[in-house]
């Protein structure tokens, strides 16, 4: 029973999450594209930069946040940069990317710092919402998404730090994660024995479970801001 549940989370649910993610994004995209355009222009003034450059600046430097709350801004930027590094790190678990070795590192850049930064930023975002006036404008989704991220990251960080610094007999070598993820992407899923028989297996299962959950919620929650931000920012400069 336990093995079946674990297997379900480690393999079929991962495929399910990926399918929901792709189909969800496609659905959301079509939802917008099939809606009527507007006749006018909703732009704001002044526009000191060419449109494309302005959109990139707005999207990646977040000037409104910088003007308003420097601490919040710094944590938003740190969070998003770390998130990208995290995604790259996971890709490196599947395959080596030579160009990423410009800064020599083991699989994950940052020797564990990336995870810590993410956790700290996530907690800041969460605690910020506990206060007036942000508490009043928050809906359950806002808290739940942060909690899902928090749990995923805590367990992910643990796996990484424990393996890297050899904590308390954490016995799962990198090669086994490689075999597991490699199996998933080549559609020949395996759960290597070193993982399946490890007393730490449960930690990996929890990490994968919450990551799956997050990926499935992505297209249907406010996480869609990662896509639609560009549409809105571009309209703002039309």
């Amino acid at each position: 029973m336990r093995d079946t549940l674990y297997y379900f989370i480690m393999v079929p649910m991962v495929y399910l999450a990926a399918a929901v993610f792709v189909a969800g994004l496609f659905f959301k995209f079509m939802n917008v594209m099939l809606s009527p355009r507007i006749k006018g222009r909703l732009g704001l003034f002044p526009r000191r930069l060419p449109r494309a450059a302005g959109v990139l600046k707005d999207a990646f430097a977040l000037p409104p946040a910088f003007r308003k709350d420097k601490v919040f801004w710094a944590l938003i930027i740190a969070f998003h940069v770390a998130f990208v590094l995290l995604a790259l790190g996971h890709l490196e678990l599947i395959r080596e990317f030579a160009f990423l070795q410009i800064i020599p590192h083991q699989v994950f850049l940052g020797a564990g710092a990336v995870g810590i930064v993410l956790i700290a930023a996530t907690l800041y975002f969460l605690f910020r919402r506990f206060r007036t006036p942000w508490r009043e404008i928050s809906v359950p989704e806002d808290f739940i998404l942060l909690l899902v991220l928090f749990v995923t990251m805590i367990f992910g960080s643990h796996m990484h730090l424990a393996a890297r610094y050899g904590i308390a007999g954490f016995d799962i070598p990198l090669e086994d994660y490689r075999a597991y993820l490699g199996g998933l992407v080549s559609f020949k899923p395996v759960i290597p024995d070193m993982i399946a028989n490890s007393p730490h297996y449960i930690i990996i299962v929890i990490h994968i479970f919450f990551a799956n959950l997050f990926i499935m919620l992505f297209p249907f929650s406010k996480m869609i801001h990662s896509v639609f931000a560009f549409s809105a920012l571009s309209l703002k400069r039309k």
Partner: peptide, 21 residues
């Protein structure tokens, strides 16, 4: 009123609260 901008405006607000005051 569900035109394109309305669709994505309704979906993408993160309730960051930067507009609050």
């Amino acid at each position: 009123r569900l035109n394109r901008p309305m669709r994505y405006y309704l979906d993408l607000c993160t309730r960051c609260g930067l507009c609050y005051d």
